[in-house]
């Protein structure tokens, strides 16, 4: 069995050297689907993360968050008023 090339003995006659030649159409369709899916998922995840962040800042106090950011970074700590892993990152961690 071979997924593509089984001999390099006649390079002048060899064309495509990737496995499964003839499936290019399928691969291109899969590429398109992956591209569109990625955009949709990224936008959904980001919307949810931004909504959560805005709600947190309103609840916690925007001024307080901003002041703490400055104070924490001035003292050498990491900035941020929220320590969970779900945030404004484009990839939402549930």
């Amino acid at each position: 069995m071979s997924t593509g090339i089984s001999s390099w003995s006649n390079p002048a006659e060899i064309t495509a050297i990737y496995p499964f030649p003839g499936t290019e159409w399928l691969l291109v369709i899969a590429g398109f689907v992956f591209w569109i899916w990625w955009h949709v998922k990224q936008i959904r995840d980001e919307n949810r993360a931004l909504k959560d962040a805005a709600e947190h800042h309103r609840r916690y106090g925007l001024r307080k968050t901003m002041e703490e950011n400055v104070a924490r970074t001035a003292s050498g700590e990491a900035a941020g008023s929220h320590s969970s892993s779900s945030g404004v990152s484009p990839v939402h961690h549930d």
């Binding site: 993360a49 931004l50 909504k51 959560d52 962040a53 805005a54 947190h56 800042h57 309103r58 925007l62 968050t65 901003m66 950011n69 970074t73 001035a74 003292s75 050498g76 700590e77 990491a78 900035a79 941020g80 008023s81 929220h82 320590s83 969970s84 892993s85 779900s86 945030g87 404004v88 990152s89």
Partner: peptide
Amino acid sequence: EPREVELAGADSYEDLDVYPNFAW
């Protein structure tokens, strides 16, 4: 971005600070 996120900073809700050990 929502106004709150813009003011607080997109990195501030999550621990995404790239300079944790530097003062500013």
